[in-house]
Design a binder for these strands. Structure first.
Length: 846
RNA sequence: GCCGGGAUGGUGAAACUGGUAGACACGCCAGACUCAAAAUCUGGUGCCUUCAGUGGCGUGCCGGUUCGACUCCGGCUCCCGGUACCA
């Protein structure tokens, strides 16, 4: 009884459904055998190149839905471009160095290498199960010596050019991660990985001079037309260019002159006090004479970045007892210590103009300091309740009176320059990139410390400096520091004993150039093959999460320019910028929140593939939301995506069985065929448009669903039980429609579409078939339904010739009693005809 | 504060350069098939009104431009992301 029920239900589900797992395996094997996913390096290949890249994953062990979405987007683009006749490079690899591997190693007592390689194997399997069309022959893993040796080589070049250097500096230290961090990796004063508050420590570290490239990185943002404005804006803010002046204030007594940076030299004559950071030498020096001041400085140093909830923190200060001399008037100006002045920006000291700076204003009010207006308000009088920060004409400014702010800036700077008291200065917020990390699982920094020769770079023939892969981290300092075989080395300069650097590179170093390496990933003679670079770079379409807006995406732009300037390629060969177009996809949410293990709201891609098939997982992630928007996971909508595929499957079964009759179509048949043909080509137009403009795949798939609904209803209407006879013409257009749907589904659901196409007798390689082309003649309509508005409100439609003139349309309206009644007792004031769209009759009571 | 994005049915979302608001899908309701259920199929589904044809209202709020505004302009409110005592 039970078994009977089960078998019955199996039969039924077979009738309505298809077997995803067997056909997906079948097609994956065929594509692999036929090498359809490989990019062609052959110079004789005349196809235009297209480089489609998705951000490579960190091999954490399991693919999550965010990956699935990212990679399905990239795959849809790559497959579409292949069908459009491009020679597509669509590679994949592993960002394989990093902290999680060490943490896992500590937890499991096994070396990070093993964990990493196992994860890569598992994740590669998962990617293959999704049917993603990667050229696996170019796969790279950044932890492989054949990869990082070139990064080490590059670093030695940067050392030669003075673009890399070692310096003792105040740096960000994360205790739990046991390493320093770059500025970009500190978020709200906390470590970007473990979210604990970073400490400031003075340590000798390796830096790369990204600040030398600040201007170029900023200027070329304007050329990135294919990037989201948001990301461009974030990078612009991060670089933080401002222009102003450096001004020296002489200090009375035994002090160095006080150098300040200001963007408002025009307000110089309104300075009523100076403010320096607690860490400023002048403050420290003055504190030696005042216990009270020393106590205040001590208090300031304990205000952590965290509790300093910056926006609301109270402005505090104390007079140092020191006076500065105004560089123009010579007037004595009190120097204060203020907790809002940052030692890390500008010179750690500011001139305060309370009349024209809100922060200075609040401080002056609190401590009863004078406020002197030197800029006239453009309109009306200044009420003095808040700082007046607009530009305007100078007043109370002696010889500068009457100048406009903008002119005054220049005049005052020139005046100061003449007296050696100041100069023009462009300031950036960007700091040099700190690239050394006190971690084991990373690429060794190829330098040695020799007692005789000092800091020496490893020789090129000794590269790579191999990371021993069998060490076991324990949680404290890097096991490399205890590894004698690694540490004790020979100085490449004098041949004496030397110690190796045990710090490793920031893992963002590896991800900064992988896109270039894919062009020549198997080349062991050079970092980048010049021909391969000019063949493939720049990346035409880059796809990934927005969280890398000022991390990876800034570093990669920088590194690209470094590689160019080291001479690996010219600007003609590799371009100035690595990524032409950027798509930042949204997150995958469940119950309104980002999926995470801690929240317990994850959806496992394996489970979805097992239940519905890879094609359904792909289709849903592309259909549920536009790519750059967050996607809310919805289990029943996933099932709905699968239902759509089932319907197409049954449509294919039906069309395959049609044997056209010799009888000619009925009289109205011709019109039906024409309409269907218009639907088909309208859909081709819409789907192609989606691929060419913004990748609105949700709309593209909706269009395919719509067409498939039309195809199902063709000649049958809602009653499928009717035995319909198709003429040759009808059958052929129906077939054209189904093949079009399958062809356009191929980028989204490649296995399913291929299987259906094969059943239709369309041959094996749907994925290599040309993309359908719009037949413009099919879109032409002789008669159209024209919307009729009366008084701006839609009142109905009339059927008229597509190019009908106004009189004709009005006649049609008059002939329609339902429309005409709106005109009774009314006077026509105006008639607006939008050809092909609508007619609006403006009326008023007669 | 500043920069960027957003607000449309019960839900995810469509709407080309101003021209039929809600395509497509999920959910829900009803029906067909079934002993029954599942699956599948069909129909309905913005809100209010009406027996019904109809009519009115409706894209966060207020105002403007226009024959016509989700779309453009001015002024707000709220939400999301980024960033910040940056001098």
């Amino acid at each position: 009884m039970l078994s009977e029920t089960t078998s019955q239900s199996n039969i039924n589900s077979q009738i309505h459904s298809y077997d995803a797992s067997s056909i997906e395996a079948k097609w994956q094997q065929r594509w692999r055998e036929q090498g359809v996913d490989a990019a062609c390096d052959d110079a004789e290949d005349l196809r235009e190149k297209y480089y489609c890249l998705v951000m490579f994953p960190y091999p954490s062990g399991q693919l999550h839905m965010g990956h699935v979405r990212n990679y399905c987007l990239g795959d849809a683009v790559a497959r579409y471009k292949r069908m459009q006749g491009f020679n597509v490079l669509h590679p994949m690899g592993w960002d394989a160095f990093g902290l999680p591997a060490e943490n896992a190693a500590i937890k499991h007592g096994r070396p990070p290498a093993e964990w990493t390689y196992n994860n890569i194997d598992e994740m590669r399997r998962q990617l293959k199960r999704l049917g993603l069309s990667y050229d696996w022959s170019r796969e790279i893993a950044t932890c492989h010596p054949e990869y990082y040796r070139w990064e080490q080589w590059m670093f030695t070049k940067l050392l030669e050019k003075g673009l890399a250097y070692r310096k003792e500096a105040e740096v960000n230290w994360c205790g739990p991660c046991h390493t320093v961090l770059a500025n970009e990796q500190v978020v709200d004063g906390c470590c970007w990985r473990c979210d604990t508050q970073v400490e400031r420590k003075s340590l000798a570290q390796w830096f790369i001079r990204i600040t030398d490239y600040a201007e170029e990185l900023l200027a070329e943002l304007d050329s990135l037309k294919g990037w989201p404005e948001k990301v461009v804006g974030m990078q612009r803010n991060w670089i933080g260019k401002s222009s102003g002046a450096l001004i020296d204030f002489e200090i009375e007594g035994d002090y160095e002159p006080l150098k300040i940076y200001t963007t408002r030299p025009d307000t110089l004559m309104g300075v009523t006090y100076m403010a320096v950071a607690a860490g400023h030498p002048l403050a420290q020096q003055a504190a030696a004479k005042s216990t009270e001041l020393a106590a205040f400085l001590e208090a300031c140093s304990h205000v952590s970045t965290k509790e300093a909830d910056m926006a609301t923190m109270e402005k505090k200060g104390m007079f140092t007892g020191v006076y500065a001399n105004h560089p123009v008037t010579g007037a004595a100006i009190p120097v204060w210590v203020a907790n809002f002045v940052l030692m890390t920006y500008g010179t750690g000291a500011v001139m305060s103009v309370p009349a024209h700076d809100q922060r200075d204003f609040e401080f002056a009010q609190k401590y009863g300091l004078p406020i002197k207006q030197v800029i006239g308000k453009p309109a009306g009088d200044w009420d003095g309740t808040a700082a007046m920060t607009d530009s305007g004409l100078l007043m109370q400014s002696g010889l500068f009176d009457g100048l406009h702010s903008e002119a005054a800036k220049q005049t005052i700077i020139t005046h100061l320059e003449a007296q050696g008291k100041g100069c023009e200065k462009v300031q950036y917020r960007l700091r040099d990139w700190l690239v050394s990390r006190q971690r084991y699982w990373g690429a060794p920094i190829p330098v040695l410390y020799c007692d005789a020769c000092g800091v020496v770079a490893e020789k090129e023939e000794n590269l790579p400096v191999r990371l021993p892969e069998d060490l076991q981290p324990t949680g404290g300092s890097s096991p490399l520091t205890q590894c004698d075989e690694f540490v004790h080395a020979i100085c490449p300069h004098c041949g004496g004993a030397a110690k190796r650097e045990t710090d490793t590179f920031d893992t963002f170093m590896e991800s900064s150039w992988y896109m270039a390496r894919y062009s020549s990933s198997r080349d062991n003679a050079t970092m980048l093959d010049r021909d391969a670079v000019s063949q493939w770079l720049p990346v035409d379409q880059y796809i990934g999460g927005v969280e890398h807006a000022v991390l990876h995406l800034l570093y990669a732009r920088f590194y690209h320019k470094l590689m160019r300037d080291v001479g690996l390629f010219t600007r003609e060969e590799g371009g100035d910028e690595p990524f032409k177009n950027l798509l930042t996809q949204g997150m995958v949410l469940k119950d309104g929140a980002k999926m995470s293990k801690s929240k317990g709201n994850t959806v496992d891609p394996n489970a979805i593939i097992a239940e519905f098939g890879a094609d359904t997982a792909r289709l849903f992630t592309m259909f549920a939301a536009p790519p750059e928007q967050d996607l809310e996971w919805n289990d029943s909508a996933v099932a709905g995506s699968r239902r759509f595929l089932n319907r197409v499957w049954r449509l294919v079964e039906k069309v395959v069985q049609i044997s056209p009759s010799e009888a000619e179509a009925a009289a109205n048949g011709a019109a039906d065929v024409k309409l269907l043909k218009r639907h088909i080509h309208g859909t081709i137009q819409r789907v192609t448009h989606a691929f060419e403009h913004g990748f609105a795949f949700n709309v593209a798939i909706a269009a395919l669903m719509e067409l498939s609904n039309h195809l199902q209803a063709f000649k049958v209407g809602s009653d499928e039980s009717v035995d319909v006879v198709f003429s040759h013409n009808e059958a052929s257009v129906l077939r054209e429609g189904v093949v079009s749907v399958l062809t356009m589904l191929a980028p989204f659901t490649p296995h399913f579409a291929s299987e259906c196409a094969e059943r239709m007798g369309e041959g094996e390689m749907l994925v290599l078939k040309p993309w359908p082309v719009v037949d413009a003649s099919a879109l032409v309509q002789d008669e159209i339904n024209l919307v009729v508005q009366i008084g701006g409100k839609k009142r109905g439609e009339v059927t008229v010739a597509k190019d009908a003139q106004q009189e004709t349309v009005l006649a049609a309206v008059a002939a329609d009693p339902l429309l005409n009644r709106w005109l009774e007792g009314m006077q026509m004031v105006k008639v607006v005809l939008v050809p092909g769209r609508l007619l609006n009759i403006v009326v008023k009571p007669a």
